[in-house]
């Protein structure tokens, strides 16, 4: 049978990326900044966040938190003790949050005065890293009991962080944690990123983290990771159009394609039959985040 190859160059997560970008703009318009907190389970996200929310209250800063949990509402209950508005996203077993799940909760929430919205992601360092949630500050946390080489084992998560937070520093000595080796591993995957020490026990780093968040809220551009500096394609063909590139000359021999979406419809490049992909769609665009 004859075949034809349709060249797409379509980012698999384009839908999530698009939603996340919309959400970021929407939050900005509402005077709010989202902070995405990621770590392995048990690194101390909830414990640290509870203190940060409490401290924000003391400092008169309106904050709120959305927490993802596989099945229970324990984290939401713990966080609510701070007095800040808290909502729980039940992910029903999904191992990461996606932008649409976050958006669902933000229609009439949190209260209008809220400046920072903390999102506690599902405890996992693999896939949450690939899903933009519309945050302006992405924080990756790790505790002193998890091993100094964790950053190179999870390079995508650590490599895309705007800020790295080392947690449970009260346990650093008993755990024999080597902070220099850790800093070196962080630097390998994310040169120049700041590492903030914290402990939910002693309170170290609580004000520091809140300060970083408030800086992001007032529009200070966070650190820009090297990994985020790859120009990823989002809507190759659309941009190929906009940039005036020519599409492959072959006309489609099949029935007229019914356009479905505003962007790629009718602009896929056909290399027929089973031919070379056209370089007309190799144009890449800045991913903007």
């Amino acid at each position: 049978m004859m075949c034809r190859t349709v060249d797409l160059r379509h980012a698999v997560l384009a839908k999530n990326d698009g939603l996340a970008a919309e959400l970021r703009a929407d939050l900005t318009a509402r005077g709010m900044t989202a902070v995405n907190l990621m770590s392995s389970p048990g690194s101390g996200k909830t414990a640290l966040l509870e203190r940060v929310l409490t401290r924000a209250g003391e400092r008169g800063v309106a904050v709120a938190a959305l927490t993802a949990d596989l099945a229970t509402e324990n984290d939401a209950r713990r966080l609510a003790r701070s007095g800040a508005p808290v909502k729980q996203v039940l992910t029903g077993g999904l191992c990461h949050l996606e932008a649409d799940q976050v958006r669902e909760h933000l229609a009439d929430w949190p209260p209008r005065a809220t400046r920072a919205l903390f999102v506690e992601n599902v405890g996992n360092l693999v896939c949450p890293a690939t899903y933009d949630l519309g945050e302006s500050l992405r924080v990756v946390l790790m505790s002193v009991t998890e091993g100094e080489d964790k950053p190179v084992k999870y390079p995508t998560a650590f490599g895309l962080a705007h800020l790295v937070v080392l947690t449970k520093t009260d346990l650093a000595q008993p755990a024999g944690f080597d902070e220099e080796v850790f800093a070196d591993h962080v630097e390998r995957v994310n040169p120049g990123v700041e590492v903030l020490r914290s402990s939910a026990r002693t309170g170290e780093g609580v004000d520091g983290l809140l300060d970083r968040v408030l800086a992001a809220c007032s529009g200070v551009t966070p650190h820009r990771p090297v990994l985020a500096r790859q120009h990823l394609e989002r809507h190759g063909h659309t941009h190929a159009h906009e940039h005036g590139h020519e599409h492959a000359p072959e006309a489609e021999s099949g029935p007229e394609a019914a356009p479905e979406g505003p962007d790629e419809a009718a602009s896929d490049v056909i290399a027929s039959p089973a031919g070379q992909p056209s370089d007309a769609v190799l144009q890449t665009v800045a991913d903007g985040s």
Binding site: L13, T156, E233
Partner: peptide, 16 residues
């Protein structure tokens, strides 16, 4: 980074 974060559908092959 020049390459390494790609996650994209390059092409689909369809029957005539």
């Amino acid at each position: 980074l020049l390459t390494g974060r790609e996650l994209e559908i390059a092409a689909v092959t369809l029957p005539e």
